[in-house]
Design a protein around this nucleic acid. Structure first.
Lengths: 188, 188
DNA sequence: CACTATCTACCTATCGATAGATAGACTTTT
DNA sequence: AAAAGTCTATCTATCGATAGGTAGATAGTG
């Protein structure tokens, strides 16, 4: 049975992520995801009873993977500026390799029309992002007040999400790279 | 016949804008829009043959209204810094009064799953935004190279769209105001 | 046997879109 | 001026397709 290393649940989540990062929550269906995985839509319901369960699980996994890639913001072996660059590079990878919008960015845009548990997962992604950046920024500027660090963290998250949004609609990598460079320059 | 001053087409577009700014292109239906206006879905099709026609017309009208509110970026009677503040204030109004996402921001997020003419209208919104800001920025910093002005313009657009996105998912005005203030501070 | 995962088959609701009819307001013809 | 035709905006009714979701049978596993 277990000839594949990846569980069906994980393959469903991977397919759902790809679909949602293209068309959002309302832009994909159980049948499409099932077809991507190679099973029937009824089987998807076996793993995720309702659409909101699948979407919430997908957003949660996305956030976990994202934060894991960022690593520990207090890692003494890492230069704070290098961590900021790593943050920017993670968005760059999502844009330039996947060529798709940030999952939680799409969900945030249609948040007012989303089931509550999906909105909650998207909110959590942004909270985790801001907290991580805030911690790193405090290490770069010891004199900065906590409140200033938070404002700056939020500005970085907003810039990167906005950059992805614009890159997504224009298909233009140059614009994305320009904005990413501007954000990075703010820490030289 | 029509004792109302607003045409049916315009009322349809207004209803569609409200709906799309909540749930995106895939998050609204002809029946919902028709019900909002007080007509039947078949009557909406009379004015806009297909869904993509309605969405494209709505996005176009949104962009026109937005640019009209910005005014002439070369207006000699206006301080360039005041124009930048006006730009930020326009986003603030869209967020704090309408309490909804920027229409072209939602569309940009799901752009990969949109009919071509809808994507084109959303693209045009961002081009117009960048051009307007670029013109204003060149007036504030005579020494700046055109390319730098464009990069800075794109950074402002990205920041404001990202700020709306985050405000939309968190429902937190404070975060939006913090980011808006950070963007404005960049020009002091 | 009990459990898990998948299937086939089906349900109800809604989708975007179309057909055909109607009523009223113009336009043209006689 | 009256009659006939045309245009506009709306309606009711319906289409085929697809949506999310469910029931029950089947096959493999421990």
């Amino acid at each position: 049975m277990n000839d594949s290393q990846i569980s069906t649940s994980d393959r469903i989540i991977a397919a759902a992520e790809k679909r949602m990062r293209t068309g959002g929550f309302h832009g994909f269906s159980f049948r499409e995801v099932a077809a991507d995985v190679g099973i029937k839509s009824a089987s998807v319901h076996h793993h995720f009873p309702a659409k909101e369960d699948l979407a919430a699980a997908t957003a949660h996994a996305y956030a976990e993977r994202f934060m894991a890639a960022l690593g520990d913001p207090n890692d003494e072996g890492q230069n704070p500026l290098a961590l900021i660059r790593r943050y920017i590079a993670l968005f760059s990878k999502a844009q330039l390799e996947d060529r798709r919008m940030c999952l939680c960015g799409v969900l945030a845009s249609e948040a007012l029309d989303l089931p509550e548990q999906v909105t909650t997962e998207a909110q959590r992604f942004f909270e985790l992002n801001v907290d991580w950046l805030k911690t790193v920024i405090r290490r770069t500027e010891k004199t900065a007040k906590p409140r200033d660090a938070e404002a700056r963290a939020k500005q970085i998250v907003a810039s990167m999400e906005g950059a992805m949004m614009i890159a997504n609609v224009t298909g233009d990598d140059c614009t994305f790279n320009q904005i990413a460079a501007s954000v990075a320059d703010g820490f030289k």
